[in-house]
Design a protein around this nucleic acid. Sequence first.
RNA 1: GCGCCGGUCGUAUAGCGGCUAUUACAGGAGACUGUAAAUCUCCCGACCUUUGGUCAUCGUUGGUUCGAGUCCAACCCGGCGCA
Length: 404
Amino acid sequence: MGAIKFKIEKKLKGQLGRAGILETPHGKIETPAFVVVGTNATIKSVNVEQVKECGTQVVLGNTYHLYLQPGDRLVKDAGGLHKFMNWHGPTMTDSGGFQVFSLGVAYKKGITKFAKTEDLHDDTNEKEENKISPQLAVIDEEGVTFKSHRDGSMHRFTPERSIEIQHNIGADMIFAFDECTSPSAPLQYQKEAMDRTHRWAKRSLDYHKSQPHSEKQALFGIVQGGRHEDLRKISAKQIGGMDFDGFGIGGSFNKEDMGTAVKWVNEILPEEKPRHLLGIGEPTDLWEGVENGVDLFDCVLPTRLARNGSIYTKDGRVGITNARFTKDFSPIEKDCGCYTCQNYSRAYISHLFRSDEMLAGTLGSIHNIYFIVNLVKTARQGILDGNFRELKEAFLSRFRPNTA
RNA sequence: GCGCCGGUCGUAUAGCGGCUAUUACAGGAGACUGUAAAUCUCCCGACCUUUGGUCAUCGUUGGUUCGAGUCCAACCCGGCGCA
């Protein structure tokens, strides 16, 4: 052990939040930090220089995708993920656990990992799940059998296989193989899935430690338990008790009180190890996460939203293709320091989207990445400077989920 | 002037007597949380008591018919050909 070192610099008074430094074999990360997602060993539509200029410290690739294309052996032969993609800073890989969900029960059903409380009283989602319809992933005790979304070929992931692949890919921080459950799955199933994820965590850890050079990569265990307090606490205790280098918090949440769920977990996880909230999120979620002791976040939203024409501003998300922007020659945000805002107008970016130009997604992504990465940096600075609460409230009083 | 062909919701198209109209693009709006995603959904004649209803509409005007975008006639416009 010892691929990473984590040092807490300052804590939020009376709360779980903390600012720290995470040292990896490829450099330091000032935490809390936002990890930019680059599933296929590339951040879609932007190059590594642009990603770096946005203030990004660390990127995340995906085990399932890189295993299918170009293959983890090829990435290894290329000299590892860093060299292959020309990103020489810190990296992580997801274990493929999320694909158990997205290609499994969620496949083609519009199910997300978020439940809203009002939905919990109707069983629409559950009915959806019980419908017989194609799934690309089937789970058993040993592992998961996948049908490739690319060519329909069959593949099998087990905890051992996931770790083996992640060793080949060679990211600085890797994750145990887990199952992300649907928020509408029955409680009984959520518990079974969680228990299985715990067994998989142990197997992931055992396999990792059994391999030579495993000390070069840090392994994070993943806490599950869905929206349920009792399950979350059990999971945090079990996973937190294992000898991982850090922890991921995964699974599904109740949209309204995600911060609370994170708190249940982080009150239990060992304080001295880093925590990564998987697949989150929205600006409001990020403030909640930081406040409740999360050190790392990753999310596809900034880049996906950008490619789909949704741009973050301090007042909320805006659809840059809206008619009102066609003659708006001001930048997306006049006080934004990103390359896009320094050089281009709303009208121009709107035009690029309407013209289906590739640069549209690039300029949008640069802004959104900059926005989110720097939002977390601001929150970090707030912890260090002792004005976290003021910064959070100032942000939230302006930001609306969608409108500007 | 004669002959032929054609005029359908911004554009391009489908439709060849029967529940008043297809599809694509453009346009408008929305969704997206460990990326099957530069994707997907909805709206796009008018009005209303909007899971539905009423009326209008296929160049114009008449006609045939129970019923016409669809058949007939004249006219208007456009293209091509011949003078």
